[in-house]
Design a protein around this nucleic acid. Structure first.
Lengths: 125, 125
DNA sequence: ACTATGTATAAATAATACTTTATATAATAG
DNA sequence: CTATTATATAAAGTATTATTTATACATAGT
């Protein structure tokens, strides 16, 4: 029963639903989500952890980055994710997605000349 | 989104899942549930209200009693209820159902002679 | 090696949700 | 009309969860 409770609890928080909606578009690293939702990073990490613990998302480490994506290994959870995606109107997350796109584009630009990836979300210019 | 959050939140609490499992068997009044779960009445009322607010159960007033039953008017919530019933093992609620049966039987007995219903859950004998 | 970046984690605080105890309301029985 | 029963609601206390701020850790760039 505890597992089931954790499952539902993971979905009963706004930030986490916004994250799920963002991840609909595919894998993202933490800094992408931070930029898109305009929230502080530990907060995002906290909620990503809740979603991960509940089995809704998986992570993959690549260098400094940790990429999160939807975990579709469990049928029931997959269905719940689907229900969320279907029910949370795009309007509500339009700004998130807009900021995400802008941020991703900005990242692209910073990968210049060589194949070396430059800074992702620099705090100081 | 708030509605969706409330929906999931309603299902992320043990007592409420136990109530849902009890109501699987059909309509029950508050005192039945109190007896079955062996919890104080205001607690049960609190959780019944959460389930009702979220649209998982309905109530029906009859005399002093208020009977609660599963509300199956919404497809998605119906599915969620089903998922809960399916996933919460009967073992976990065996004692609840046992106490419920005992209590219902006791109630039956108290309806004697005339059609007048006698006390339901008398505190003092 | 040194610095900057991405992310996690810990500690303190704030906000929510749950529980308890007491009381109110409504209905029925006597 | 009074006492009793079923349930709800309110107020106070407790516990859980989320947020913030600070710091730690790992990796990459120089």
């Amino acid at each position: 029963m505890d597992e089931l409770i954790k499952t539902f609890k993971a979905l009963s928080e706004e930030t986490r639903l916004r994250v799920i909606k963002l991840l609909e578009g595919g894998e993202l690293c933490v800094c992408d989500i931070v930029a898109a939702l305009e929230l502080v990073q530990p907060k995002i990490s906290f909620h990503l952890n809740a979603l991960k613990e509940a089995g809704f998302i998986k992570d993959r480490k690549q260098g400094k980055w940790i990429h999160y994506r939807i975990d579709d290994s469990d049928m029931f959870k997959r269905f719940l994710i689907f229900s969320v995606l279907e029910r949370v109107s795009d309007d509500l997350v339009a700004e998130d997605k807009q900021r995400l796109d802008a941020f991703l584009k900005l990242k692209e630009k910073k990968v210049i000349g060589t194949k070396t990836k430059k800074k992702c979300c620099g705090r100081k210019p």
